Computed example of a mutant assay.
Amino acid sequence: MPGRSPARSRRATERKGDVRERAILDTCEALLAQKGYDAMTVGDLAQGAGITRGALYFYFGSKQEAVTALVARTVEHLWERSRTTAQADEPRQAIAAAMQRTVDLWNEHGLVMRTAIDLSLTVPEIGELWSRTADLFITAITAVLERAGVEAGTEPEQASAMARALCWMIERSFYHASQESREELQRASSTCEHIWLISAGLVG
């Protein structure tokens, strides 16, 4: 009976590895809700994912690495949902769509997002990841503002500077509102959207 080809064997191993990594990250997100970052351990991650501690170390060297990967996965989802904003034709619709996508992700993964913000000052990898993500959104917001007629540039009244302020305003507003309720998060989103529209000159 012929054996499996090396290529097929490698593909099967990769698929198994992807499933295990996803299980570790899903467990990590659940443990953040149950115990919080400080209390959870590598042993908890391994047990929740149904593997040994030794097997877990094949994927992540520490709980910090696992949380960093979880943040990376979450912000990738956030960017995938929002990256069309800069290409949308009509600024008002682009703003509404971007805000709603962001609300949806905060509703689904708000704890991970808050953990990323909390750790961004003490875990360099997470801080760099969060900063890069913010830069992507600042670029997208800048494009919307410019398309709405705001002058390009970095002066306080110009698009790039306004986009940076809007980005960090949205982050901080969502951080606090997501700890209250979905309704409060939606209200915060509506306020941020209104401020973005005013900044773009789309409301009086």
Rank of each mutant, 00 (worst) to 15 (best):
R164N: 10
R164T: 09
R164A: 12
R164D: 08
R164V: 05
A165T: 06
A165S: 07
A165R: 09
L166M: 10
L166P: 03
L166C: 13
L166R: 13
L166Q: 11
L166N: 04
C167V: 01
C167W: 05
C167I: 00
C167D: 11
W168V: 07
W168A: 04
W168C: 02
W168E: 03
M169E: 12
M169H: 13
I170F: 01
I170V: 12
I170R: 08
E171Y: 04
E171C: 06
E171Q: 14
R172A: 14
R172M: 10
R172C: 11
R172H: 13
R172D: 13
S173C: 10
S173V: 02
S173W: 03
S173L: 05
S173R: 11
S173F: 10
S173E: 06
S173N: 06
F174R: 00
F174G: 00
F174I: 00
Y175A: 12
Y175R: 06
Y175S: 07
Y175I: 10
H176N: 03
H176P: 01
H176F: 13
H176W: 12
H176D: 12
H176Q: 13
H176C: 01
H176G: 09
A177T: 10
A177E: 03
A177D: 03
A177Y: 05
S178T: 02
S178I: 05
S178H: 01
S178V: 03
S178R: 02
Q179E: 08
Q179T: 07
Q179M: 13
E180L: 15
E180K: 14
E180Y: 14
S181P: 12
S181F: 08
R182H: 15
R182Q: 14
E183M: 10
E183P: 05
E183L: 09
E184Y: 00
E184G: 06
E184M: 09
L185S: 04
L185E: 05
L185G: 04
L185D: 02
Q186W: 02
Q186S: 04
Q186F: 01
Q186C: 09
Q186N: 09
R187N: 11
R187A: 15
R187G: 08
R187Q: 15
R187C: 09
A188T: 01
A188R: 00
S189I: 04
S189L: 07
S189A: 15
S189M: 08
S189K: 03
S190C: 14
S190W: 06
S190T: 12
S190I: 05
T191G: 08
T191A: 09
T191E: 12
C192W: 00
C192E: 02
C192T: 06
C192R: 01
C192N: 06
C192F: 00
C192A: 15
E193C: 10
E193T: 13
E193L: 13
H194E: 11
H194S: 11
H194W: 11
H194R: 11
I195T: 04
I195L: 13
I195W: 00
I195S: 01
I195R: 04
W196E: 09
L197P: 04
L197F: 08
L197M: 11
L197I: 11
L197Y: 07
I198V: 12
I198W: 13
S199E: 05
S199C: 08
S199Q: 02
A200H: 05
A200M: 06
A200Q: 10
A200L: 06
A200K: 09
G201F: 01
G201K: 00
G201N: 03
